[in-house]
Design a protein around this nucleic acid. Structure first.
Length: 493
RNA sequence: GACUCCGUAGCUCAGUCGGUAGAGCACUUGCCUUUUAAGCAAGGGGUCCUGGGUUCGAGUCCCAGCGGAGUCACCA
């Protein structure tokens, strides 16, 4: 804490001013409302009350200017000594000396326009609502230059409250993120799908392939995992008779951190009975077009150097065709040796063993094809080896009824016609376990309860996972996931 | 995990060839009744990330560590 400011607290108390008063301060307008309505309706602004942080002081002799920043924006304040004739120390001492930038302040007065044309609140009374004991990194801007910008990403994320105070644009990002989530929720609710909550603490993890976080329940003396996915629980609900369920799911993966990955992240997953992945593609197009329109008021979004158009329909391309048109080679029937040769040719390292042919192909796709897909593109019909929870393709048993939606070179959504044959499902999971065991990885117990649920019969179902963080990155035009997470994971201080 | 860059005042940064620690903003004091990056004048403020080493002397050079950013790898 700043000793100068601590001394000011003592001085305020001596003057009978509580630096942290209890009484509420009722506001009746905001900075943005004043700017919007005052020019037409001046009479409505004879007695305004607003609250926010003291953001700038331009002190002069008997009159001074200041700037107040509230949630809606900034507005200039005007103080005159004459207004405080009964207690001049309120102006000379309290306002001029004891109030600091960053203090939370309530003001009362009338709106006017200065000679230079700036809409300003002429303050007649003010009350300190909370003292700010640490100096804020307040930026000063001119047309050419920004002074003292608060830019260190670590500090911004570690002290997000300061970042939010200082950078109005950061608040906009998180408002927009909430708009995105709400418009997805509205879209699903309008169609009658049921929002549910399923366990975050799971005795067996599944539904994706990732290392989990492990924890322990004392009373049951039981190992538990933070979910890496909620897929298997939502499918149990389809077995249970719901025809459409979704969940905004915070998932946890014990893996590396980079600008696309945080150990906890958010997906929305949707499962709809009696539908397939072709139907789901159309739903996703409608969903995204609608969400983007509601969030931005149009269907296009600038992301880095690209303008991306979310208006339906989206291009559709089959997995092997996408690889062929990108590399000029049909890789589907190449031998393992030929695939390794191709990876060498393209200067790509091999995956860590044990790997299958499909893993080599996946590497080609991930490194060479996916990054080139900028406009929303459905890549369909993935190899069966890569998709253990997806139904085999109706016309080609080596493929699955699966699509990923790629936007700006990154996976945004993943969907299947869900595998509902319990015998096939068991075999596929067993094969995955065998592969893990061969790679020396810790064995993952089979989710027997999930298989039991399937044995009771799951209707044919279309399932979708959509990455909320990635969507927010796109619609906010930010290059890293940390910018759309209020509190991204950091090392301890 | 590998590599590259970075770490100096509350914030953003400069610091030459190794020779007394700097600027702007913020802060403190004074003047100023429509200013606006307000201005003018004066002033305070440093574990130069940490620990070693080289040197008469290290913010600067070397080594190690810690932290951050980026690229790659891992994450089917």
């Amino acid at each position: 804490m700043d000793p100068v400011r601590q001394a000011k607290i003592a001085e305020l108390r001596r003057l009978g001013i509580d630096p942290f008063p209890t009484e509420p301060f009722l506001v009746n307008t905001t900075a943005a409302q004043i700017f919007r309505y005052y020019p037409q309706q001046k009479l409505d602004f004879k007695s305004v009350r607003l609250a926010g942080r003291l953001w700038r002081k331009r002190l002069m002799g008997k009159a001074s200017f200041a700037v107040l920043r509230d949630e809606s924006g900034e507005i200039q304040l005007y103080f005159q000594r004459d207004d405080f004739a009964e207690r001049p120390e309120l102006y000379d001492i309290v306002f001029k000396k004891l109030l600091d930038l960053g203090d939370v302040l309530g003001v009362e007065g009338f709106v006017f326009t200065t000679k230079t044309g700036e809409i300003t609140v002429h303050v007649q009374r003010f009350r300190l609502l909370a003292k700010c004991l640490r100096p804020l990194p307040i930026e000063k801007e001119t047309e050419e230059k920004t002074y003292a910008a608060f830019t260190d990403p670590e500090l911004r994320y570690r002290m997000r409250y300061v970042d939010l105070i200082v950078h109005l644009g950061v608040r906009d990002i998180f408002r927009r993120r909430t708009t995105i989530v709400q418009s997805i929720r509205d879209f699903f609710n309008q169609r009658g799908y049921l929002e549910v909550e399923t366990p975050i603490l799971q005795p067996v993890y599944g539904g994706a392939f990732a290392r989990p976080f492990t924890t322990h329940h004392e009373a049951l003396d039981m190992q538990l995992f933070l979910r890496i996915s909620n897929e298997l629980y939502l499918k149990r609900l389809i077995v249970g008779g719901f025809t459409g369920v979704y969940e905004f799911s915070k998932d946890f993966r014990n893996e590396g951190i980079d600008r696309y990955h945080n150990p906890e992240f958010t997906q929305v997953e949707l499962y709809v009975a009696y539908q397939d992945y072709l139907w789901m593609m159309e739903l996703v197009e409608q969903l995204l077009e609608s969400v983007v329109r509601q969030t931005l008021g149009k269907t296009t979004v600038q992301y880095g150097e690209h303008e991306i158009d979310f208006a339906a329909p989206y291009r559709r391309v089959r997995y092997y065709d996408a690889i062929e048109s990108s590399l000029g080679v049909n890789v589907r029937h190449l031998s393992e040796r030929e695939l390794i040769e191709l990876l060498h040719q393209k200067n790509l390292p091999l995956p860590t063993p044990p790997y299958e042919r499909a893993d080599l192909i996946a590497r080609l796709f991930d490194k060479l094809v996916e990054p080139s897909l900028i406009q929303p593109t459905f890549v369909m019909d993935y190899p069966i080896e890569l998709s253990p929870l997806a139904k085999a393709h109706r016309t080609d048993p080596e493929l699955t009824e699966r699509f990923e939606l790629i936007v700006a070179g990154k996976e945004l959504a993943n969907a299947y016609s869900e595998l509902n044959d319990p015998i096939d499902q068991r075999q596929r999971l067993e094969k995955q376990m065998a592969l893990r065991a061969a790679g020396g990885l810790e064995a993952m117990p089979m989710d027997e309860d999930f298989l039991r649920a399937l044995e009771y019969g799951m209707p044919p179902t279309a399932g979708l996972g959509l990455g909320i963080d990635r969507l927010a990155m796109l619609l906010c035009n930010v290059p890293s996931i940390q910018e759309v997470l209020l509190f991204p994971l950091l090392r301890p201080e």
